[in-house]
Design a protein around this nucleic acid. Sequence first.
DNA 1: TTCGTGATAGAG
DNA 2: TCTATCACGAAG
Length: 204
Amino acid sequence: MRRRIIRTTFFRREPIICARELVGEELVWGTCAGTIVETEAYLAEDDEACHTFSRPSARAFIERNKPGAAYIYFSYGAHWMLNVLVKGASNGFVLIRALQPLSGIERMKKRRGVDDERRLCSGPGKLTKAFDITNRHHQMNLCLDPRHCFARSRGQDVDVVADERIGVTRSAHHPWRFTVRGSKYVSVPVRSLTRSSIDRSSSL
DNA sequence: TTCGTGATAGAG
DNA sequence: TCTATCACGAAG
């Protein structure tokens, strides 16, 4: 079966568009694969939650790499985070936050020490552990090798919900988290109201 | 709710 | 050198 790799041109668009459109597609990593059910967009400009705001190394990464490159970093002394570089009219990253496991499930269970499929990849740190993604994949071009790529799903259209990003303190109000509506594989359930709508309703 | 964990960056 | 700050996850 031939895989339809998502090519570089996909990542030459707006980061927010890419984040939304990656939901429902597949992440393929060696013998493991999963449907992407949750992403977040980060913008290189005017987004204080983006690494570019506080890390010169992130700004240098954007300069040095092509769209579709893996941006991987270590978080809280324990977890690897997988992002993909986007360079369109504006630059940024898409953080891959949760997957619905498709194949290599036994291997994921072993790596995670968890049996419940819903909890195997329900978080950015969990999915990198399940897929064995580490900094050795940093800067890898994810648009060339069919064993490390994003691939088109053969499924129908997905119903995507936008809400606020998880775990960010700065620029927290942007609705740049995208999930499959009703998915049981996401990291945190969708909050019904965005911050701005709460502010509006509570000020009435 | 709390806490471990280590890379990164900026201040002193 | 020291310190603050995390795009987190597991246990309680």
